[in-house]
């Protein structure tokens, strides 16, 4: 400990330490993270303040200057001379590199943000029949919400013959097409998907697919097919039973949205 005491009391060490701590606070402790331009300004001000503080008395100024002077003046010690040349070369090189990055800008595609669960319509027309999504109930659940066993088995077959290529056998968005799609198919085992939704919402999504989404859902990019015309109304309710049963999730209760 005592060996390090002089080092700790040295103004150069203190300057570097305070600067690093300030950087750590700005960069990691402040949430949400501040933009890099602001970070640069904060660090600039901090640097000036620290320098003013250390150089406010002679001792501080000397301690700060001494190592730098030594580095710049030394003629005998080979290591110090080498270090001097290294620093003298690295600084302009760094400046050149930074200038290069600024004059030759890199382009990056703008991120594609989409709202995953946009508000559903209140009613939809399915095969000419109007379905109220708010009040729609899965006909294959009894009063306590327990699924009908035969319907569940039928739902598994619907899933295996229509959904498996994208959503995958394990319902984890692991089908063979999944990696090639953007956005990826929904991962039904993720608590952020079907567990957040009412069964009526799922009926809408499965019946109308990507093209049925409002603008904020960006359905034009979604490979989720609309199954109206292929699956019958019962089959959609059956596959919904299976999605919840196989993942152990539960639909959100109506009026709880």
């Amino acid at each position: 400990m005592t060996r390090f005491a002089p080092l700790l009391r040295h103004r150069l060490t203190q300057t570097i330490a305070i600067w690093l701590i300030a950087f750590g606070i700005y960069r990691f402790a402040i949430q949400p993270p501040i933009p890099s331009s602001l970070l640069t300004i904060y660090l600039g001000i901090t640097t000036v303040v620290i320098l003013l503080w250390v150089s406010s008395d002679d001792r501080g100024l000397n301690e700060l200057k001494a190592p730098l002077t030594a580095l710049f003046v030394e003629r005998e010690n080979r290591n110090v001379v080498g270090l001097r040349w290294l620093i003298l070369i690295l600084i302009p090189a760094f400046v050149g590199w930074q200038t290069y990055l600024r004059v030759v800008p890199r382009v990056e595609a703008p991120p594609e943000l989409r709202s995953i669960h946009p508000a559903p319509p209140t009613t939809i027309t399915f095969e000419g029949k109007t379905i109220d999504l708010q009040t729609a109930k899965n006909p294959f659940r009894d009063a306590s919400g327990k699924p009908d066993a035969a319907a569940l088995a039928a739902g598994k077959v619907v899933y295996g013959t229509h959904c498996v290529f994208c959503h995958g056998d394990a319902l984890k968005a692991n089908g063979i097409f999944a990696d090639s799609l953007n956005p990826r198919p929904a991962d039904f085992t993720d608590p952020g998907t079907i567990a957040q939704l009412q069964e009526g919402y799922l009926f809408w999504r499965i019946a109308k697919g990507g093209p049925g989404l409002p603008t904020e859902g960006k359905g034009w990019n979604s490979a989720m097919p609309g199954w109206e015309g292929t699956l019958k109304e019962e089959e959609i309710w059956q596959v919904i039973l299976y999605l919840y049963d196989a993942t152990g999730q539960h639909p959100r209760e109506a009026g709880n949205q």
Partner: peptide
């Protein structure tokens, strides 16, 4: 691209100045 050598030269000149002053 002209800015790249300009920046390098300016940085080197400032260094030389500092070295000389110290």
């Amino acid at each position: 691209y002209v800015w790249i050598p300009v920046a390098v030269v300016v940085a080197a000149a400032l260094e030389a100045l500092l070295l000389w002053a110290v």
